[in-house]
Write a protein that binds this DNA or RNA. Structure first.
Lengths: 332, 332
DNA sequence: CTCTCACATTACATCGTTGTAATGGACTGG
DNA sequence: CCAGTCCATTACAACGATGTAATGTGAGAG
């Protein structure tokens, strides 16, 4: 049987509340008493019951992290940063996958409201008014990335500007036939829209006319889907001078497809991605990408979340994290 | 204010316990009563408080998943499988990173004992008698991978046999100078030992003498560390005929290093990895690897864990998950 | 018409912790 | 010597859900 405050109290010859006071350190406890209690805790190998504590204070010390697809390297890096940053501040992290199921985002809000998690960091895919019924009390939520409407606190990288700058970088050596890979056919994700618009803005500022045939759709943002889409594209189109993929994962798939077709990178075509995943640097050739500090994103998200948990009423805040254009072997 | 069973009970004109009975479905509830309660729950937007439930039944419905390095694609894929399998059975997953800090594994056991998580799936690095003090009541734990001693239930892929078979596959076309990359200098991980021994066993069965100079150390199992180690190695050694990397991540780093040196894969050297991460298939060239069903690992681990949680006393069990040798472009 | 029996429902206590308000003792100053 | 102050400590209740044992209700048998 596990020891409880009561057991510790009995052994130390004090009341349960004093044991609690020793643990929490808010209410002062005299030196000798504190020592006796601490020794009793040691001897009994006491571990506080977090369910009980959670019930009593209404907080569990756990935050949720929900990502669309947990299996990607990008997710792994974000999750790692969030876990590390959270752990440093005493929080635990519960992970969830929203997948492509819109229903799941709603479900998570409920889970949060079940008091198992105190707050949620959510990278939304389809989040919209139906998923987040405004009016129903929301748990504290911080969104990651672009969204179609401002529903909660948010941390993001400016996809529009980054996509524009990357497109400009790809165009610098005089390339004009610049393709993008990652347009969604059905419902466009907010991120895809931003990146597409950034790309278009760059073309416009360069005086290059928009060319539908250079905008390659790709349903899933995975290397497999990207490789398939690109191969199919190449079957019926000439090779573009540059290819801007909306994620590094897609870019890796693209590199593979190009290599299979014997198209040389960057000599025949320059390639770039977005996210700066660790493996991109070691691609063949090393992948150019839009880079940003994932730890900063995690830290900002956690900061906003903690502040939101403390005060549910203050106005919404949106934080942008800076990016850099990393030109590596795949584009020069 | 959130609705509680009491509120629902009042509105439905029944006792709190009846509401509980409706939710849990163990104790029978008559049709009309059930309907009234369900409607009341709807109207009040009732969500049960999991902390309270956890306190009462001593179970939280959360399991922990602890991996050494959350940032790797391999971790991401494992985490995804565990989350999906767990979710399908109604469990939530809390993730933790043990990093290289041995202390952290211990800390997690404590966390488990704090009743926040009901069980733990742990991929140990340094787990040993000091980290898991036998005698102290352990929470239900399932270990992933190789370990130096049998401490708990375990799910693993036979690293020895897989490494042996992969080495044999690399040798099949007549290659004899086969190198391995991933030996640790300091404390050898149990996994590294198994894979090294499998490699050595293959050489022996082929009548190839063991050659220390073909066993390349690499402190961290990351692409960066692998690329560095290999480059340094190539500075002072001839190019081997084949290179078996202990993980796909290292193999990706190796491919990059070889490409930078202008060494062609697989013409000059065959390369293989271990883990079958998604990006490996899209490497240039496509990476040969030891493949296994990660979902099966997750499912088995969860099954063992659930059974262990139900019965803490039954004998330890060890489950092996089959593997296959995937020969792709990098080795033929 | 009473007595059982089966079954739905309820009252109460409990899980472990901590906030609130009350208690008790030591110390200070008049 | 006593009132007043301060501070550590305590008793008690509460957080929300659920197991246990008791209660109430109706049907069926004698």
């Amino acid at each position: 049987m596990r020891a409880t405050v009561k057991d510790v109290a009995r052994r130390a010859g004090v009341s349960p509340k004093t044991v609690s006071n020793v643990m929490n350190g808010i209410v002062p406890v005299s030196g000798p008493t504190r020592l006796r209690v601490e020794q009793a805790m040691q001897e009994l190998d006491y571990v506080p019951n977090l369910s009980a504590r959670g019930l009593r204070n209404g907080r569990s010390g756990v935050i949720g992290l929900a990502l669309p697809n947990l299996g990607t390297p990008f997710s792994a890096e974000i999750a790692q940063c969030v876990v590390e940053v959270a752990h440093a501040q005493g929080w635990s992290v519960q992970i969830e996958e929203t997948g492509s199921d819109p229903h799941r985002e709603q479900e998570l809000m409920t889970r949060a409201r079940a008091n198992l998690i105190d707050g949620l960091i959510l990278n939304p895919v389809v989040l919209n008014e139906s998923a987040v019924r405004v009016g129903v009390a929301l748990p504290p939520v911080v969104l990651l990335g672009e969204v179609s409407q401002e529903l909660a606190d948010r941390v993001y990288v400016d996809s529009f500007a980054a996509a524009r700058d990357m497109t400009l970088a790809l165009a610098r050596p005089g390339r004009r036939r610049i393709a993008v890979l990652g347009i969604n056919r059905g419902r466009q994700s907010a991120t895809a829209i931003q990146r597409t618009q950034g790309y278009e803005a760059a073309l416009q500022s360069l005086g290059i006319p928009r060319d539908e045939t250079l905008m390659i759709a790709c349903e899933e943002w995975t290397p497999g889907s990207a490789a398939d889409s690109l191969m199919q594209y190449l079957d019926s189109h000439p090779v573009p001078e540059a290819l801007f993929c909306f994620t590094d994962s897609m870019a890796l798939g693209a590199l593979n497809a190009l290599w299979k077709r014997g198209i040389r990178v960057p000599d025949d075509i320059a390639v770039a991605g977005f996210d700066d995943i660790a493996d991109g640097r070691f691609a063949v050739p090393s992948l150019s990408t839009v880079s940003f500090d994932k730890r900063a994103i995690a830290a900002e998200a956690l900061r906003l979340l903690i502040e939101r948990m403390a005060d549910r009423s203050h106005p919404q805040r949106v934080v942008s994290v800076p990016y850099t254009i990393e030109e590596r072997g795949s584009s020069r």
